[in-house]
Design a protein around this nucleic acid. Structure first.
Lengths: 191, 191
DNA sequence: TGAACCATGTAAATAGTTACATGATTAA
DNA sequence: TTAATCATGTAACTATTTACATGGTTCA
């Protein structure tokens, strides 16, 4: 049930049309919740029905005409209540980990090329995130609570991609040149 | 398209009935690909239709009777080819990151309790994984290629949960006692 | 005028979740 | 003999993906 809330968040940041939202879901918001334009148009319809958003008045509201939406008070209230509503983290569901496990069962065909490809994709994504951080959150600057929230979210993305690059690097090394098993690292203790 | 492959993998490890598979999807395999019993029964039907698995002969194949499945050569072939088939990593899709971003927009209601709750859940999961590692992959033991594959998969789970506990701990500290922004860590360079 | 792009949408298929139904076996 | 549990399944709903349809605008 996150897509409507992702859309409300995006519309609060800036009233937009369906296509503009789609573009923004390819960048910022989309880095943590992706959606296609079909999902977005459908959801905009539902949100309008529910009275959470409305289309801004327009001269010619015809097919093929741009239609901008803004959030109504009911929508803001729904989003606010969703923010603190308890929701358990999802189970991990990762095809690559699953494929490695399958490889163990079918006798381990060569996955090296695929692992290298994933490593490169994750490295590229990490670089992008780090560039955003440089640009939007340069060190030693007074920031608001809102900036701080946005920054920890970006740190989440950065550290996730860091995890993947590190794990893929270790895994490749382990499968190429097996020593005594994967590197172990101490689990962090609480502060 | 991963569920049928998850099931084929589980059935190769051990021929099972639908309910047994459901149990195993609550443990081992399910740590990386979860599924409900309804999904599993439906998929077993499809896999049988496709000639990838078959029900083992039984005396009384009636409703309410246990039915065990085993993988046929066609199923093994399909799984083997899937293992090396290129498939891009999924975009991140995480409700908690999204909620933090929404919090930045609606004015930051108090998410501390929810963050603490998630931290505890991730810590518990991490402990479980570490216990599995102790049990199944004790240090200093000769292991086969298959064991090595299984171990790197488990390391993936361990390091993912380590990331979450660390990021949540940092985020809580940052939102409680704001200094100059989230802690930065150097990005790893390639070897 | 026609190609490229902007913009909104419909349709159909696949995937996943939630609720409920039904028969078989076992043990109090 | 009834309650609990094992085991398989149906139905309905929600979410997501893929393919296609339609009209408007701009510019060569």
């Amino acid at each position: 049930m996150s897509l409507p809330h992702a859309i409300l968040t995006a519309l609060l940041e800036k009233p937009s049309s369906g296509l503009e939202l789609t573009r923004r879901f390819d960048r910022s918001i989309g880095y943590f919740w992706s959606a296609t334009h079909q999902q977005i148009y459908r959801e905009l319809g539902k949100l309008e029905q529910a009275g959470h958003i409305r289309a801004l008045p327009s001269d010619q509201p015809a097919r093929g005409q741009k239609k901008d939406y803004e959030v109504l008070p009911a929508g803001l209230q729904e989003l606010t209540s969703w923010v603190t509503r308890p929701e358990d983290p999802r189970q991990i569901r990762d095809p690559l980990l699953l494929r490695l496990r399958a490889a163990a069962v079918v006798g381990g065909p060569d996955m090296e090329a695929e692992l290298v490809r994933h490593l490169e994709l994750h490295r590229a994504q990490l670089e992008d995130y780090l560039a955003f951080e440089q640009r939007d959150f340069p060190p030693g600057r007074r920031i608001t609570r809102q900036d701080r929230l946005r920054h920890v979210v970006l740190r989440g993305g950065i550290e996730l991609e860091t995890f993947w690059t590190k794990w893929l690097t270790d895994t490749l090394a382990e499968l190429r040149d097996p020593e005594d098993g994967p590197t172990r690292h101490a689990a962090p203790d609480g502060p």
